[in-house]
Structure formats: structure tokens, C-alpha cells
Design a protein around this nucleic acid. Sequence first.
DNA 1: GTATGCATTC
Length: 447
Amino acid sequence: MFIKFPLTKPSEIHSHGKTKPRSNEMLKGYVKVNATSKALLLFRDLIRKSTSSIDSFSLLYIINACTRNSSRHEGRQFITLVVKLGYMHIIFIQTSLINYYSAVANLADAHQMFDEMPVRNVVSWTALISAYVHNQKPNSALKLFREMQMKNLDPDQVTLTVALSACADLGALDMGKWIHNFICRNKKMNKDLSLYNSLLNMYTKCGDIETAKKTFDSIKEKDVTTWTSMITGYAIHGQAKEALALFTAMTDSKIHTKIVPNEVTFVGVLMACSHVAMVDEGKRYFNSMIHDYKLKPRFAHFGCMVDLLCRAGCLQDAKDFILKMPMKPNAVLWRTLLGACSNCGDIELAEEARARLIEFEENLAGDDVIMGNIYASRGIWDKKETARNRINERRVPGCSSIEVGSKISEFVAADGDHPFVCKIYEVIESLMGNMSGYVSSFDAYDT
DNA sequence: GTATGCATTC
């Protein structure tokens, strides 16, 4: 006679009803504080005991942990478990999986998960739209957003927050304004700070700095993101004085409720300094960030500082700054220096920066374009020719950017294009009829 | 008890 031994002790079998919720509470807690190893170990212990010691909630929490850490290897195993244990029909699991696939940059599977859902709601739609935004496909995100409305499904404030983010990435001011209007008309909707922050960001990124300021002023309870968005908005529009005045206002407890700046705030502040070559101020803010606010500078901050030193013409200082960084410099930093060398005609430094860039195996035509231009400006034609040949080997087509005004939603750029960029021939085709015979002449190689 | 969101260097 076959006797099946229980995998768990009898006492534990009886306490199943209690241990499961308790272990799930622990899992949830670990995931919440990002104690991933602890969560994974706990999950492993549970599953070793018996598959009946976990349920759909346990899997949901552990998948969320994988999402937070972009853990493909673990994630795949948990998805297998979801299928094996028969939890795939649960909408919460499905939505979490869209999120997970998005985090591991697997849009195809995120979309397939969505397609296979028999029942979808505003949350699952928003999860997919957000997946496209986070994977640099703002056009597809907006397409989905429109599709959702076509199906008469009302977006909630989260959907609109994400859609506005897509508009910001595209520079799609008209769509952004349309959403703004939609928000104002919709009296029933919950409107929270994230939504207004996203709206403010959309206006700054679309270049409507006046409406951005109005939006900023209309937000009564601002958080650090609100302030940072406005500071960065002024910075990218070259209004350094306004940006720095805002930073002062933000940190001045006498004027406003004091908000503590974070790393991102300082990126905006340093950008402001760099755009008007305020070298000493930039250095002061950089040091203040480290010593007064105990914030660790990241690539973005080093990038701003290199840019700042370069714009001020202190190329050697910029190079020393890069070499003295506590972490390994990335390609962007060397490329900033290379660009500056081109403006100043510093061949030796340019060659050094170019050599550093080759180590990154990033084959960008632009780097050789700069080298070619530097050699040409000095009349060193043989080297110019070599650089030019390297460009032609790659034959990367260039594209131009154009403002299409009220028709932007009709002529939006294809996903994969640079933000703010519409392929010029698409616009010309639309405006002047089919000119496909001419469009290839607009393909440049980069000049 | 469970799923969706805002600000970041060229």
C-alpha cells in the first residue's frame, strides 16, 4: 500500500490557515523595505516546505520584488510557478506581470500579457501605457491612451499622470493641453499632487514656461518634486537666475514651508549654472550638496559639472575633474569634453577624449563627426578623411527636428526617434502631398 | 490583505 508522507509536520498542516497570512505579511514587509534577499530566502523556505504554504498573494509580493530589482532570472521562475499553481487568471497577478515585464525591458511580453487578459480595467491599461513610457516609447503609449478612450474606458488620475509624462517626452504640447482641459472638466476625478507635478513637467518640457509657472503657482502644497520640476524647467530654458532664486526660496524657511532638496533638485541647480557658465556658483552648489545636504553625487551631477567647466572654457579642469571622479566615468562625460574641444579647437585633448570613448564600444557617428570637423578646421586633411570614412562606414541616417504646432498629434515622430523630433519628410509629405521621391535627399549623415 | 503614477548629465 502506498503511503504518502506529508511534506510538512502535522502541527504545521493544522496551522496553515494562520501561517500563510503571517508569512505573507513578512514577505510584503520585506518587499516594502526592499529587503530582497530576505524576501527570496523566506519564499524559498516556504516553497521547500510545501507548495501549499504559498498562495497567489505570496507570488504577487515576490514578483513585485523582482520588478523593483529587474530580476529576470528569479522572475522567470516565479512566473513558471504562477502557471503551475494556476494563478494566471487573477487580474492582480496579470497586472503585476505587465509591470514586471516592463521593468525588465520586455515590452513584447508585457503587451502579450495584456492581450491575453480576458478582463481589463483602468489599472491594467495604465500599467501597459506606463510600460511604454518607461521603455522610451511615448508614441505607442499615447496611441494606447487614445485606444483606451475609444473603448469608453475612463482614465483615472494615474493614467493621466503617465499620459502627461509621454507628452513631456514627445514635446506634444497640444495633447498635454487637451489632458489639462480634460482634468479641469472632470469634476469627479481625484486630483493629487503627482498629477499636478506631471502637468507642470509637461509644460516645462514642451517649452511653455509661462503656463508652467502659472501651474507651479497654483499648486498650494508643493513637494520636492514640484520645486525640482520648476527649477529644472527654468534651467533648461536658460533662465538661470529664476532657477536659482527658486532654489533659495525653496530652502528658505522664512518664505515657504521648508522643503529639503534631493539629488534631482541639484541636477536642476547645476544645469542652471552650467547653461550660463556660472563656474564658481556651480562649484559651490556641488560642494554644498555633498557637505550640507549629505547627498552623494551621481553621473548626472558629474555630467553637469563637466559641462559647466567646458562651457566656461576650462577644458583641462574638466578633464581633471573626470579623472578624479570616485567612480568610473561614463561615455557621456567624455563626449561632453569632446564636444567642448571641438568648439575650442583643442586637438590633443579631443584625441584623448576620442580614445577614451572607443573603450566604451559605443559606435556613435557624432564622435567622428566632431573629430572630422576639428581636423578640417586646422587643415589636417588626411586625418579628416580617416574620420570621415569611419562615419561613412556606418551610414547612420540623420534626422532634423521641426515644430509642427497644432498638428503635432497627426505628425508625431516614430518611437525610437529622439524626443522632440519629427522626421522632416513625414511632415513635408503630409503638408505637400506625397513627395516620397524627394525624401531620401533629406537623409543626411550628420553634419 | 492583492495591481497603475510625477522631477535626473550630452
